[in-house]
Amino acid sequence: MDTFIEEFGAVWGGFLGTVSLTAVSGVLALILGTVLATMRVSPVGPLRTFGTLYVEVVRNTPLTLMFFFWVFVAPSIGLLFPSLGFWPAVTALTLYTSSFVCEALRSGVNSVGIGQAEAARSIGLTFGQSLSQVVLPQAWRTAIPPLISVLIALTKNTSVAAGFAYVELVTVQRTLMTSNPTDGLWIFFGIALMYLIITIPLGVLAGQVERKVAFAR
């Protein structure tokens, strides 16, 4: 207990590390995931093939392997980051998470009944109008709860960066537990609390959004 309070500066540093990693890679993953989802639902064959291949491979790759690639393998094929730590972690997390974002968005689009689009077209809406007025508003409702669970998973996944020279909560947990073995349980629950500070609001938000957008199909 004492260690956790005394070393709160270090814990706070780790917390900021986790938050910044989650925020930056979360935003980038949402953008990349949207691009991938657009590819996967587009009428152009090669784009669909690329999107499908990407999602299949990335989803079956362990995240640790992804980190390993960007930290150890990428430099030897000429992809060098200016510094170790933050940017390789962001790259790995973004590429990994974007495939799950893509699937959440795609399932949202696929959940819209085909009659909706046919009705929109039959009253004379253009492609853009039917997309923005009819299809996407409904797709969002289905896509948002799984998107939030993807973001919660991302928050937990940032912990893998602890193994690859980045200071975040689990890195701090490891240092503190090694230097104060007797205080281990308190440190564990303290760090756990810091994670819950991020994930619980997201979970509550997910529940509220879900209730708000619930509608009969």
């Binding site: 919660i152 937990k156 996944n157 940032t158 912990s159 893998v160 602890a162 193994g163 909560l169 689990v170 947990q173 490891r174 537990m177 090694t178 073995p181 281990g184 349980l185 564990f188 760090i191 756990a192 994670y195 819950l196 994930t199 619980i200 979970g203």
Partner: peptide, 18 residues
């Protein structure tokens, strides 16, 4: 909820270090 909400790596370090 707690076990689901924590990173697996944290649990592994708990077992290893504590």
């Amino acid at each position: 909820e707690l076990a689901r909400g924590l990173p697996v790596l944290m649990l592994m370090f708990l077992a290893k270090l504590f």
